[in-house]
Structure formats: structure tokens, C-alpha cells
Amino acid sequence: MLLQPLRDEHAHLLPHIETLCTVADTLDHTTPEALDTALTELELFLRDHLIPHAEAEDRVLYPVIDRVMGAAEATATMSRDHVEVGRLAHELGTLHDALDREGLSDERRAALRRVLYGLYTLVKVHFAKEEELYLPLLEQRLQASEAEQLFVELAHAEHRH
């Protein structure tokens, strides 16, 4: 499969995505210290891995998909998913800061749960759309040399972050 490296990258990111759900599931039973550690690790993952991945897709992958599909806005909804991931990641950071200052109120617990489950669901569906719809299309229409160039450009864009 020409685009297996992208599938592999998603597979590498998925355990961290699962952690979003796990942290939300255990909010009622975790210590403040464990929650602080988990939220810090999630924020680092979002900032250092998931968001750079999304930005690289917006700059490199989606223009190729748009070209192959012959539609300039074919991936606009996918880019919108990325905007929402960034917004939710920011909200997670804001909630984490408030948690550090003021503790975990019922309202804050509910907001954290909403943001964590929201990120989890959004990213899982986003990856599924890419892998089930866009990647098979690219594999049918890209030459091996084009796929190789795509991965070089994606890697460069991701590390420019």
C-alpha cells in the first residue's frame, strides 16, 4: 500500500487518543496529582504531535487530495476538524490551568469530561474518514514517486512546527 506510512502514523497516535477517553472515564476516581500528570501529558501530546500532524496535513496532504479529486474544497470539512481539535486543545489547557488554581469542581469535571470525550470522538472519526475515504482514493490515483514525495513533504511540514 502506497500510503501505509500515514496509516502507521495514525496507529502510532491512536494509543494517545485512547488516553483521552481513559482520562475522561476515570475523572471521578483519580487523584488530583494523577489527573494533573495525565492532563499535562495529553497537552504535550496535542501540542507536540497531533496538532503538528494536522497542520502538515492541511499544508501538504489535503491540497493533493483536492487536486486528485478535482475539487478545490474537497477536504474543507477535514480542515475544519483540525480547527476544532485546536479549539478543544486550547480549552483543555484553560481547564487544566483553572484546575491547578481552584481544584476540581463538579462544573469543571463535567467540562473536562466534555472536552476529553469531544477530542477523542472527533479525532477517531477524522482518522477513519482519512483512512476509509481519502487514502484509498490516493492509492488508486498517485504514482509511487508522487507518494514518496508526499511523505517527504509531510515529514518536513510536521517538523517545521
Results as ranks from 00 to 15, higher is better:
R109I: 08
L13R: 06
C21G: 09
D48R: 04
E153V: 06
H29M: 15
R160S: 10
L13Q: 05
A34M: 07
V64K: 00
T22P: 01
A34C: 06
A111D: 14
L142W: 02
D97G: 08
R141G: 03
A11H: 10
R7N: 09
R87I: 15
K129M: 13
T37L: 07
D100E: 13
H156N: 12
R7F: 11
L27R: 02
S105K: 00
H10Y: 15
E146I: 10
R101K: 08
D8G: 01
E102H: 10
D97F: 12
L6P: 03
A110L: 13
D48N: 11
A11F: 09
Y120C: 04
L104T: 09
L137N: 01
E43I: 15
E146H: 05
L142E: 01
H126N: 04
E9Y: 13
P32L: 12
G93N: 09
E73N: 07
P136V: 07
D81F: 15
D28H: 08
A54P: 00
L112C: 02
D25A: 04
A128Y: 09
P15A: 12
L27C: 06
E33C: 08
L46F: 10
G118S: 05
Q143I: 11
L112T: 06
L92A: 06
M1A: 14
A38E: 04
A144S: 08
V64T: 07
A72G: 14
L116P: 01
L27P: 03
E132R: 09
K124T: 14
L138Q: 01
H90K: 09
A155L: 05
Y62T: 01
T31V: 04
D81V: 12
I51K: 00
A89H: 09
A11V: 12
H156I: 15
A11M: 09
D36P: 03
D58F: 13
T75E: 09
A98I: 13
L61D: 03
L95E: 05
V123N: 00
H156L: 11
L35C: 02
L42R: 00
H49Q: 03
L44P: 00
L137C: 05
D58I: 10
H53V: 01
E158K: 03
R113T: 14
R7W: 11
V60P: 00
D25R: 04
T22S: 13
R109G: 05
R47I: 13
E43D: 15
A11I: 12
R101Q: 11
L104K: 03
T75Y: 05
F45M: 03
I65A: 06
S105C: 01
H96R: 15
D58E: 10
V23E: 02
L92K: 03
L99Y: 13
L50C: 02
L154W: 05
